[in-house]
Simulated assay, not measured.
Amino acid sequence: MLLVEGASDAAALHGVAALLGRSLPAEGVSVVAMGGATNVARHLLELPDGVAVGGLYDAAEERFFRGGLERAGFGRVADAADLEAHGFFGCDPDLEGELVRALGLEQALRVVAAQGELSSFRVLQRQPAQRDRTVEQHLHRFLGTRSGRKAQYAAALVAALAVDAVPLPLLGVLGVGPPQL
Results as ranks from 00 to 15, higher is better:
Arg141Val: 12
His138Pro: 09
Leu157Glu: 08
Val100Arg: 00
Val53Glu: 03
Gly35Met: 06
Leu181Phe: 13
Val173Asp: 02
Val16Leu: 03
Gln107Met: 12
Ala52Ile: 05
Gln115Thr: 11
Gln137Glu: 15
Gln137Trp: 05
Ala85Gly: 15
Gly75Tyr: 05
Gly97Ala: 06
Pro178Gly: 15
Val163His: 10
Ala81Asn: 10
Val51Arg: 14
Phe89His: 11
Ala17Gln: 05
Ala12Thr: 02
Cys91Gly: 07
Arg71Leu: 14
Asp9Leu: 01
Val31Pro: 07
Ala113Gly: 13
Ala7Gly: 08
Gln127Met: 15
Gly97Ile: 03
Ala129Ser: 13
Leu19Phe: 08
Ala113Arg: 15
Ala85Asp: 12
His14Ser: 04
Leu161Val: 05
Arg131Cys: 11
His138Gly: 10
Gly15Tyr: 03
Glu98Phe: 05
Arg126Gln: 15
Ala26His: 11
Gly21Ser: 03
Val166His: 02
Ala80Ile: 04
Ser8Leu: 00
Lys150Leu: 02
Val32Leu: 15
Gly35Leu: 10
Phe88Asn: 03
Ser120Tyr: 07
Thr134Ser: 15
Ala108Gly: 13
Val173Pro: 04
Glu62His: 06
Gly54His: 00
Ala165Ile: 07
Pro167Gly: 12
Gly90Asp: 02
Arg101Ser: 13
Glu61Pro: 11
Ser30Arg: 15
Val29Glu: 04
Arg66Pro: 09
Asp82Ser: 09
Arg126Leu: 08
Leu19Thr: 08
Ala102His: 03
Ser119Met: 07
Ala11Lys: 08
Ser147Val: 13
Arg122His: 12
Gly148Ser: 04
Leu13Trp: 04
Leu124Ser: 09
Leu44Arg: 01
Ala12Val: 01
Gly97Gln: 04
Asp79Cys: 02
Gly87Pro: 01
Arg133Asn: 13
Val4Tyr: 01
Ser119Asn: 13
Ser8Gly: 05
Leu19Trp: 03
Leu143Phe: 08
Ala18Asp: 10
Ala12Met: 00
